[in-house]
Design a protein around this nucleic acid. Structure first.
Lengths: 191, 191
DNA sequence: TAATTACATAAACACTTGTTTATATTAGCT
DNA sequence: AGCTAATATAAACAAGTGTTTATGTAATTA
């Protein structure tokens, strides 16, 4: 991700601490102590605390958008597109739960203008997923309903994954989790 | 809730600001300005900022526990117990979305000991819901699966509700939302 | 080897934070 | 009326915040 190994370590520790404490509670001093360096040294890697948050947040958002674009480019029926969306979210969570947590909860600490942009992009992203749900309804593959409402239910039922730390997590592989969540979303729990 | 109307207003504004900004970003000065009083005056209502968070958090947690106890006390089959749990969460969210947001995200700013207690109680609460799901599986009403995993999916698919602010929210009543989410959880979206 | 860049630290700065103290005013009760 | 409790404010405090400046050392490149 970053050619510079020191900078890479900085990003890694910063991400970890940021997800652990949250933006406001994370201090540059504590981050420095985790990096075993002086606080002022951090500014060799990043311009400000806010710039760190900004970079992390938009980096993840971009990955979401890229992933979704690839899915949209296919000619899959809606149900398969939705499956790919579920897969995308689960893979990203397995790849980096910390970043997913930051993406979900720390955006409100962005500077006003950047926050507006972030929210705007998220709305675009979510609207595209609503469209897939709506297409599924139109195709007769999904039950009828409010596509926005359903999209919220769908995305939310995946969102808890970043918190997953129970013993069963260790033995779980992404593929299996993907199968189980997809089954839950598509088929519900009733027999 | 509070006989004292001034104290009630204080709690109301504090809840609103706390959910809007988050614990660390909320300042006593801003809270005072919303209450149109001096910052020091706040301490006539509450011992500390931490005490405010603590009180709010455990008050909501208690409501969850009370609600769940009533459901457990019934002789309903698991599927109806689960429906009641869904109803409980949705009602509480409609009653006070701000408090639900605080309950979901601000507990990590509790003092160490109280945080441990909070987490312990939440685990107890969640385990009871897993038990209901497991009972449903055993009764043959639900598909087989990891009851903890399914419980996470279930609770998570309701959690987004506190953010709901789209136009469709206005026309929606709790009963209808209850019906739609219950349908999603039980039956999935596939036709 | 010399020069430029990357990396490091100590000290200080300007500002914000929650909270306390001392003191005044208001409201409710006997 | 007089007394008590509730409510209000201004001023100050000690601790913590992100960031800058000045200065040094190590690594890389020319």
């Amino acid at each position: 991700m970053d050619k510079n190994p020191k900078r890479a370590k900085f990003i890694r520790e910063a991400t970890s601490l940021l997800s652990e404490k949250g933006y406001k509670a994370m201090t540059m001093r504590e981050l420095a102590s985790r990096l075993d360096c002086d606080k002022s040294n951090i500014y060799n890697y990043i311009a400000s605390k806010q710039a760190l948050l900004d970079q992390l947040l938009f980096e993840i958002a971009d990955k979401f958008h890229t992933g979704l674009s690839e899915i949209e480019a296919t000619t899959y029926p809606a149900i398969d597109k939705l499956k790919e969306v579920i897969r995308l979210h689960i893979r990203m969570t397995f790849d980096n739960p910390n970043k997913m947590q930051i993406h979900a909860f720390e955006w409100r600490f962005l500077e006003e203008d950047r926050k507006k942009l972030f929210i705007k992009r998220r709305k675009t992203y979510e609207a595209k997923i609503s469209d897939i749900v709506q297409a599924g309804i139109d195709e007769g593959a999904f039950k009828s309903g409010d596509s926005e409402f359903l999209r919220n239910c769908i995305l939310s039922s995946i969102r808890w994954l970043y918190t997953w730390n129970s013993p069963s997590k260790k033995t779980a592989n992404p593929l299996e989790v993907e199968k189980n969540i997809t089954e839950f979303i598509l088929g519900g729990i009733k027999k």
